[in-house]
Design a protein around this nucleic acid. Structure first.
Lengths: 229, 229
DNA sequence: TGACTTAGTGTCTATACGACACTATTATAG
DNA sequence: CTATAATAGTGTCGTATAGACACTAAGTCA
């Protein structure tokens, strides 16, 4: 039993570039394939789109199935349609990128993710298909977007220090920022709000914890405010 | 004789939002459908992707077939995958936007474009499918992009006056700009180069014609220059 | 209690942006 | 041929913003 169409159709897939951040690096979630083609090689999580689900739904479903990650920030990136990008047959893939903070979501704890793992962006294995290219486009987009929209907060835990926030920008933009200027700018925007707590278990003076102020962010966004860092 | 697959597949289409500019308005190219669904209604040019062509190729092919426009600036926009966006069956569409100068490309002169026409963005007919939404996303993108990347030159003839260029920005950004500040900024960027000619057949002092300097633009782009207007 | 580590803070200078108005040139109408 | 109308083309100044720059405060740990 199959499905028959008058004209040949490309298969339609989704792939997701999941970025995470630890103390050191920007990381990417990859899964190890256990089927041909590219058996054993690392690849982006993803899979075929079902006829009764939206593209976003397909991306979220595949993420849960393959990595255990759910309820994370997800945005459509670009659609890749080179004719020979899959050796089996014509497959067009809608690529997404996702941001997740490593503290909140433990991949190893998820059920069916034996072969999912984080890799630092600076030291990636060879990837299947054109996933290297997709990843580069995603990183490019993340860099471009973070400069004028504070999406980076998705990479941090709920409460964070300004040092962590600065580190995030430094890792994504790949350059050092001046501490005083950075704090001036971020605090002037009023999109982070001081909490009454400070960080714990650090071997030096503890820093104040801040929280992302989504309410103010939404208001400023409606006013066309420029969040450039 | 048909094509049979194990799982049901969404159909894959491309649609193109073609922007053009005249002395007054930003315009959009639409075609009048002559088949159900939405028979007789206006829609974006587009059609189904063939298995042996890339997405870009499909978009260009449909543009030529339906509007006669060829060799124009084209960029992928977003992929729309709502489940019920086509009443016949599941169709996912990769949307593109294109920029074209109205002087160089006469639509009426093209062969098979009896039912293609320009409409001012401010006075559009009701559109088929979710094309209204696609168009809004495209306009949003154009506005966002033109502010920090000089793609707008595609909307102008080869040689243009600074007045025309300013008009272009005013129409796209939907606000008035100061003539002196605008000229200062554009000339400082050195992405337009003075020609030795001036415009003709105008009932007042003729303005100098300029040309877009792609070479300098490419060099500045590589240096990460910010083209914000 | 001293040494180490990071938190947290302010000033000054250079540059960029935006507000603002007049003269120059050409075509055309009377 | 002269007046009028229309747009071309040009510079200054005040203000806001960005970036360079260095020290004190607080807490941990040996």
């Amino acid at each position: 039993m199959g499905h028959t169409y008058e004209f040949a159709r490309p298969a339609l897939a989704v792939d997701v570039v999941v970025f995470g951040l630890d103390e050191e690096d920007l990381q990417v979630m990859l899964i190890q394939r256990d089927l041909p083609p590219f058996d054993g090689q690392w690849a982006l999580p993803g899979g075929f789109v079902r006829v009764e689900e939206t593209l976003d739904d397909a991306a979220r479903r595949e993420l849960v199935e393959e990595t255990g990650l759910r309820d994370i920030y997800l945005e459509q990136l670009y659609t890749f349609g080179a004719v020979e990008r899959d050796p089996r047959e014509r497959v067009v893939t809608v690529a997404y990128y996702a941001l997740v903070n490593l503290e909140g979501h433990d991949v190893r704890a998820s059920t069916d993710a034996r072969n999912a793992a984080w890799f630092p962006l600076s030291d990636l294995p060879e990837l299947a298909f054109d996933h290297q290219e997709i990843l580069e486009v995603a990183y490019e987009r993340l860099r471009g977007k973070v400069r004028y929209q504070p999406i980076g907060f998705e990479l941090l835990p709920d409460r964070f220090t300004l040092r962590q926030l600065q580190h995030l920008y430094e890792v994504i933009l790949d350059r050092e920022l001046d501490k005083r200027n950075f704090r001036k700018k971020v605090l002037a925007m009023e999109i982070v709000r001081e909490t009454k707590d400070i960080e714990k278990d650090v071997a030096h003076r503890a820093a104040r914890l801040y929280r992302f102020d989504k309410r103010t962010y939404d208001r400023l966004t409606r006013q066309g405010f420029n969040f450039e860092i």
